[in-house]
Computed example of a mutant assay.
Amino acid sequence: MTTTPQTEAGTGAAGTQAVALQLSELVLKTARYDDMAVFYTHVLGHGPFYERTPDPEAPPRPAGMPERAVDVRLGFFRIADAPHSQVFALFGVENLSETESSGPGLHHFQFGVSTLGDLISQHEHMASIGVRPHRAANHGQATSFYYRDPDRNIVEFSCPNFATFEEEVAFMSGPVFAANPSGLELDPDRFAARCRAGDPERELLRLDNRAVAM
């Protein structure tokens, strides 16, 4: 595996320049709006700042046009405000058919936390409503717990294992990550218990730490 240094802007074939972008909105379409809203209210620690139910008397959506905000039940949740707002949203759509999970589309999405302690706190927060991770892993550059929401989307909570982005990239450019980018599969409960017991992070995050491995 090779890594490419990130630049401020990319140059297109016609000499155009890419502007600096930030992921500012993620929208999930669901037929289980109420269940999903309860789940993500718990995940984020607050409910939607805006909700709307479509007007039953509104004109129908034009044939062939994807669902628009005016056509669906809406819920917008704030994630962060700086430097630009980051929003998570639900589009409630009736009569959705199940999709094939092995086909093209979203694989998973990630919420980042700042510290290992925050990651364990989020794990405990999810456990308080009986939601358990289906996977946990020390990837080397980051440690992550993975959950499924009511629609079976994979939701990742992750914290960095290094203090700087440069250290993270250096690790990802090395032979250990190239040989196994998945890292060490963790037993989430043992890992959380050892963290709460005060094991040093350097010890906890060793990729050969069998005491916390699956």
Rank of each mutant, 00 (worst) to 15 (best):
H123S: 12
H123L: 15
H123G: 15
H123T: 10
E124Q: 09
E124N: 10
E124F: 00
E124C: 00
M126Y: 13
A127G: 12
A127E: 14
I129C: 04
G130M: 00
G130A: 06
V131H: 00
V131T: 07
R132C: 01
P133A: 09
P133T: 10
H134T: 01
A136P: 08
A137S: 11
H139S: 07
G140E: 01
Q141I: 09
A142W: 12
T143H: 08
T143W: 07
S144G: 10
S144L: 05
S144Q: 02
S144E: 06
F145N: 06
Y146R: 01
Y146W: 00
Y147H: 01
R148T: 07
D149T: 02
P150S: 05
D151Y: 12
D151K: 12
D151I: 10
D151N: 13
R152M: 08
R152E: 14
N153K: 05
N153L: 05
V155H: 04
E156H: 09
F157N: 10
F157V: 14
F157C: 10
C159Q: 03
N161H: 09
F162R: 08
T164G: 10
F165H: 15
F165W: 13
E166K: 13
E166A: 15
E167A: 15
V169Y: 01
A170I: 04
F171D: 12
M172W: 00
M172L: 07
M172C: 10
S173C: 01
G174S: 11
G174W: 03
P175H: 06
V176F: 04
V176T: 08
F177E: 05
A178M: 02
A178D: 11
